[in-house]
Simulated assay, not measured.
Amino acid sequence: MRLEAWGVALLLTVVCGALVAPQALRAQAFGRVEETKSNVAYFYHARPGEATVQLSVWGTVPRPGVYEVPDTTDLDKLLTMAGGAPMEARVEDRKAPTITVRVYRPGTDGRNQIFESELDRMLRGSPSYPSLQDNDIVVVETVRPKQPFGWRDVLSVLSTLGTLTLLGLRIFTRV
């Protein structure tokens, strides 16, 4: 008798779950998350009911993707949410790369660049940031300086020449 009661309870749970699950899933949708149908990372950083803007962060940030943030968010806060400066900028034993931040905004004739600054100038507070708007694209570009020809490069060239010399000796000499 007890086994039948458990079976009936289990059957009711499964049937009720199947009927309630689609409504529960629809109730969880919020913001514009449901509009994003790709494998791009989507980050939502706003309180419920807060006015937001949706923008893209591209380039050499640790967490590129689509960000939905409060419409009062500054560019530096957005870059912090995206993981900050690339790891190459944090290395101090060699010359630091040049990191440039650009903001593009949709216009009548395509996307227009509305802001450009090197990260160093932004950290010093030199440029004033534009207010972020819906569909802006923030691009972070890292340009590494050309490294001088060092001992590792010399060692690589010498080892390649040595390998080619030994290969030539084996091919052209019959012992």
Rank of each mutant, 00 (worst) to 15 (best):
R152D: 14
M81A: 07
L55N: 00
D76Q: 08
A21S: 05
R26W: 08
V143F: 13
L55C: 01
K95Q: 14
Y42H: 15
V103T: 03
R121M: 04
R90P: 03
S38Y: 07
E50H: 12
G59L: 05
E92P: 04
T72G: 14
E35L: 09
N135Y: 01
G17W: 09
E50K: 12
K37Y: 11
T100G: 06
G17S: 09
L11A: 10
R2H: 09
L79K: 05
M1G: 14
I171V: 15
T98P: 04
S117L: 02
L155T: 13
T98Q: 09
D120P: 01
R47L: 14
T60C: 08
R102P: 00
G162K: 09
R111V: 11
T163F: 12
R26A: 13
H45P: 01
E35A: 08
G162T: 15
S126L: 10
R144P: 02
D120K: 08
T108E: 12
G162L: 08
A51R: 15
D153H: 05
Y129D: 02
L123T: 01
G7M: 07
M1F: 13
R32F: 03
V138A: 06
F172V: 07
P148W: 13
L75F: 00
G150N: 15
T13A: 11
A24E: 15
V8R: 02
F115M: 05
R2G: 03
E88Y: 09
E68F: 04
G49A: 14
R105T: 04
A96Y: 04
P130E: 05
A89P: 03
T108Q: 13
L19R: 08
T72K: 07
W6S: 07
R111Y: 15
Y67M: 03
G17P: 08
A46E: 06
L78S: 06
N112R: 14
N135F: 02
T173P: 08
E141M: 04
R32S: 05
R32T: 10
V154P: 11
G110K: 07
A89G: 01
L155E: 14
G125W: 03
P62Q: 07
V57R: 00
T72N: 05
N135K: 07
W6Y: 15
E4R: 15
E68V: 14
I171S: 12
S159V: 10
V101P: 00
N135E: 07
V143S: 11
F43C: 10
A5G: 08
Q54K: 09
F172W: 07
A96E: 11
V61M: 03
P70T: 04
Q147V: 14
R144D: 11
R102W: 01
R174Y: 10
A27M: 15
V57I: 06
G65W: 00
N135D: 09
G125S: 09
S131C: 03
A51G: 08
L119I: 00
P148C: 13
P130I: 01
P145F: 02
H45C: 05
T108N: 12
E116Y: 10
L161A: 09
E68D: 12
S131F: 05
G49E: 12
P130A: 01
P70A: 09
R90A: 11
L11I: 09
K37A: 15
V138N: 08
Y42Q: 13
G65V: 01
D109R: 13
P22K: 00
D153A: 02
L78F: 10
P106R: 02
R121N: 03
R124N: 03
T165E: 09
L12E: 02
D93W: 05
S131K: 11
